[in-house]
Simulated assay, not measured.
Amino acid sequence: MTKKEKVKKIIEIFRKKFGHPKCALDYKTPFELLVSVILSAQCTDVRVNIVTKHMFKIVNTPEEFANMDLSEIEDLIRSTGFFRNKAKNIKLCSQRILEKFNGEVPQSMEDLTSLAGVGRKTANVVRGEIWGLADGITVDTHVKRLTNLIGLVNSDDPLKIEKELMKIVDKKDWIDFPHFLILQGREICIARRPKCSICEIKEYCNYGKNK
């Protein structure tokens, strides 16, 4: 079975299980999602949602973040970890959105990745979630771990993983595929204690089928 065939089977199984999943981050505007994804680095979505539920009642637009003291932003996001760097990026990102993009979150990959704190992963999430656009495949820690375990890739480099996955995953599935892996990673393929015995894709997984 080729990797393309394997991916197709896996996606069929996950489609039946998860349907059309959405991002687990809570947001009302493209900018709120952008900020939430920046905060999600090295932090759980659950924690980010707790923080933003309070924060977005106080400040939730590029103008408000751009005009806010850095220390105030830091205090609001402290529990997400790496808060100083995240606060700096959110403020710089907000300023650039105001200066270069008329206060609106840009749609293109090039423009999004020109913003402070926004790499391909963040841009892929925002583009896919807000506009249904896919220039690539989001690679987070779950996607990296599961694609290596399954045997679809053999790399720890997110960019290399993304390029390999783009060759074997149909473009129509580029947005949903990482969502499937994230959900499966949280529920079944847990990092320290994978539940291989009850995993629905065990027969297609290099790691699981040997368990």
Results as ranks from 00 to 15, higher is better:
residue 66 A to W: 06
residue 136 G to W: 00
residue 184 Q to S: 12
residue 120 R to D: 05
residue 27 Y to W: 09
residue 30 P to K: 05
residue 74 E to G: 02
residue 122 T to M: 04
residue 62 P to L: 15
residue 5 E to A: 14
residue 41 A to D: 11
residue 165 L to R: 02
residue 88 K to Q: 13
residue 195 K to N: 09
residue 45 D to V: 06
residue 172 K to C: 15
residue 136 G to A: 13
residue 34 L to K: 03
residue 132 G to S: 11
residue 195 K to Q: 14
residue 155 S to L: 06
residue 9 K to M: 11
residue 103 G to E: 01
residue 36 S to V: 11
residue 89 N to S: 11
residue 78 R to T: 06
residue 171 K to E: 15
residue 68 M to A: 15
residue 168 I to K: 02
residue 190 I to H: 12
residue 62 P to V: 01
residue 19 G to N: 05
residue 207 Y to M: 06
residue 123 A to Q: 00
residue 184 Q to T: 06
residue 47 R to F: 08
residue 120 R to C: 07
residue 11 I to E: 06
residue 8 K to H: 09
residue 142 H to V: 10
residue 135 D to F: 13
residue 44 T to D: 04
residue 167 K to M: 11
residue 60 N to E: 05
residue 96 R to K: 14
residue 131 W to V: 06
residue 15 R to T: 14
residue 174 W to F: 05
residue 46 V to R: 14
residue 103 G to A: 08
residue 16 K to Q: 08
residue 61 T to A: 14
residue 170 D to E: 13
residue 114 S to D: 03
residue 98 L to Q: 04
residue 193 R to Q: 10
residue 153 V to G: 03
residue 132 G to H: 05
residue 191 A to P: 04
residue 30 P to S: 14
residue 15 R to W: 02
residue 203 E to Q: 08
residue 143 V to K: 01
residue 141 T to I: 07
residue 22 K to E: 07
residue 181 L to F: 13
residue 33 L to Y: 09
residue 198 I to Y: 12
residue 168 I to S: 06
residue 180 F to R: 00
residue 127 R to M: 05
residue 181 L to D: 00
residue 46 V to P: 02
residue 22 K to C: 04
residue 187 E to R: 04
residue 147 T to C: 09
residue 18 F to V: 02
residue 193 R to T: 10
residue 134 A to N: 07
residue 122 T to N: 06
residue 36 S to D: 05
residue 77 I to S: 04
residue 164 E to G: 08
residue 129 E to W: 11
residue 36 S to T: 10
residue 185 G to K: 00
residue 109 M to L: 08
residue 95 Q to C: 08
residue 66 A to M: 10
residue 177 F to S: 03
residue 156 D to P: 00
residue 164 E to R: 12
residue 129 E to T: 15
residue 44 T to R: 15
